[in-house]
Design a protein around this nucleic acid. Structure first.
Lengths: 227, 227, 227, 227
DNA sequence: GATGAATGAGCTTTCATTCAT
DNA sequence: AATGAATGAAAGCTCATTCAT
């Protein structure tokens, strides 16, 4: 147990210095300085600098995978929308809870090392598969317009990734709120950055409009306006 | 002149080995071997490995900036759509003409080095500003629906980036063509990957639907169907 | 008593791993793994890796010293020959009983460490002194021909060492038996390698011919042939 | 040429420190300090510490191989004896010219490393083969007595090795001269050690008596005494 | 006595950069 | 201008030994 504790300490220290300086600019010297352990101790818990990073990457990707739930499409349009919203929100939460790792995963990990790249590719491919399956089902159900599933799945993934990334970097804060007419007041304050839920709504709306058949969108807008 | 020629040779060699192996995995030894010059000669033209990479990055970003033209909004909806299409196509072309650098710019450059990151950020921020201005104008003209300009600008950028990236990596090839009803036969052949223009159309359609006011979309679809 | 028992266990383990991998390639980790004790325990019984090896070396050299008996020259030529034979056989036995240590002592120990070297030198010097004394006495008794005692003592030692070493490494097995005319059948079987006694006889004969005055050798061969 | 010169300098430095401290106790730091070059320079000429040592070993073994000439047996007993004498003298000379390497080759190299061991074994096996062939031929010609060729070849090799080694270590100096009756005064002085030729004669005599058929030895001694 | 986690000096090797030719 | 030998700081990693429990 103590052993596991020490391991976690080193992992935490590694996470900090890795995301502060990047993978290559970080030396084992930095990690152990941050962790307050001796050089040898580091190698008692990990076989290499590479392994520490890999562990961090694995853990984070697993966390993300947990947060992405499969959509239940039987619950109607509104229900689907809610589930999508929850997925995005949970993922954003995961990033927000691990701001340091997020920086690495969203940016740097690509190009570091064949192994890391493969891990990330695999993860994103998993997401893409999920999106593609959803799109295909939506087409069958007649709620998604005709489109090239593979291309559009990538577009969806990209739109979410970029927004998530910019929210995390604090470049999408609440100051833009005024741009949007009819916004409900944002509930600021979360350490994550303000008004995350509004951002999620925006991205969802963006994608829903981009994907759904016009008739559904018409119904929806009529409903929104009320009778 | 001769001097400039030598410089270009080294840059070309550097571009090749950098994109074959990545920034860190590439040594000055690789560059000079590829260029066929002596070690000392390299430092006659560049002060450091870093500088070579920075030069390549600058040149490529400049190329991209040239390829993105400001939209003339006075030419009507169809005209705007054409301009957007041309922009995306030109950018994709720039990437396709520089497959080696693209790999690095789209992936690895982030996280390499504070300076590189800043350059890339600045570039992307320029793109975002352009998109935001267009969106704002579109709102004024009544062709863009109400939305959070900053968030949606990021979503647009992200959707394009991801698709471009996947096209370059050959992960969005023509095999998906059948998914789309009513597709015209794709004109294969470009080394870039097949049917790029179709992919561009898909992404544009995706974003147009996501952004424009419903009335415009209705007009458009009515027109498409014919009288 | 328990303490002594533990100590022996560690020594035994050390002997095994040292001779399997050599002194330098063996780590304390290997020793304790083999002994089944904890790291700290090792240092409870020995102050260093070096000390363990030194102990093994000392013990083995003592064993060898025990096996080399001083020659009683008063018993006649035949008796001397028997005693020589017994000495060599006993030493060979000691090596055979400790194949693991032998490997190290005969090869590696020299050059490992100043202290180890000194120990070995001292041991071999003791052997040389013994041989030299015997030669001097033999000269006085008129059974040894005129020779440079110091040089020849070294030659004798060397001839025996090399043969012993090669027997232990299994490079002097019985296949050579046919070369020798009139050999009595070898009694195989000892794990040491076959026909050790014949090898001992060969080396003795070699040295006796090299050392004794011709007249004695003549007598001997006449006697062998019978009257 | 300059390049080769530097390489030789490093080899020379390495030879010195290797034989002063042994292989394991010598670090690359010691070698470069002795050679007066920078760390990187060392790795410009050799890929590893191991390689330097291997080079030294190879060169020395090649030198030794050159010095051992095949015996021409057609020239009569006296001629053979001269050739043997020359072989041993040349080998001793090679050792004497490379006192540093000799220390390593004769002692330490065994047990250092599988590769080194193999090299040495191969070399000694070559010597043994030569000796065995000579013995077999001698038997056919009737000048060598019946014996176990393999065992005795080892004994011969051992006797020479040990004597060579002790001469090099200065442990077989001329002080023993008086032990030998009728010795001509030794011509001291060579840094190599005094009176090497006398030592060689002793070892030869030792082996000749050990090997030759008694009749030949009788003839020889009768001839020595003169008519 | 026994444990095994912790230590840190030390190792070999790499590579961006300099400089004498 | 061009060369390539030389540099040395710094990297990742090992392992004999110590020490708190």
């Amino acid at each position: 147990m103590l052993r596991e504790h020490r391991r976690r300490e080193i992992l935490r220290a590694a996470r900090q210095v890795f995301s502060a300086n990047g993978y290559h600019a970080t030396g084992v010297a930095d990690i152990i300085a941050q962790a307050g352990v001796a050089r040898g101790t580091f190698y008692l818990y990990f076989t290499s600098k590479r392994e520490v990073f890999e562990t961090l990457l694995d853990e984070f990707l697993d966390l993300l995978r947990e947060r992405v739930h499969r959509i239940d499409e039987t619950v109607g349009l509104e229900g689907i929308q809610v589930q999508l919203r929850d997925n995005v929100t949970r993922v954003l939460g995961a990033f927000a809870e691990n701001p340091e790792l997020s920086r690495i995963i969203l940016n740097e990990a690509v190009g570091l090392d064949k192994g890391f790249d493969d891990k990330l590719s695999e993860f994103y491919q998993g997401l893409l598969d999920l999106i593609e399956q959803s799109l295909a089902l939506g087409r069958q159900m007649g709620i998604v317009r005709p489109l090239d599933i593979r291309v559009i799945a990538a577009a969806i993934l990209g739109s979410v990734k970029e927004v998530v990334q910019r929210v995390l970097h604090g470049r999408l804060d609440a100051h833009g709120a005024g741009d949007r007419a009819g916004d409900r007041p944002s509930r600021e304050g979360a350490r994550t950055g303000p008004d995350v839920s509004r951002v999620v709504d925006e991205v969802l709306e963006y994608n829903i409009r981009a994907l759904f058949v016009p008739e559904l969108l018409d119904q929806r807008s009529r409903r929104d306006r009320g009778p």
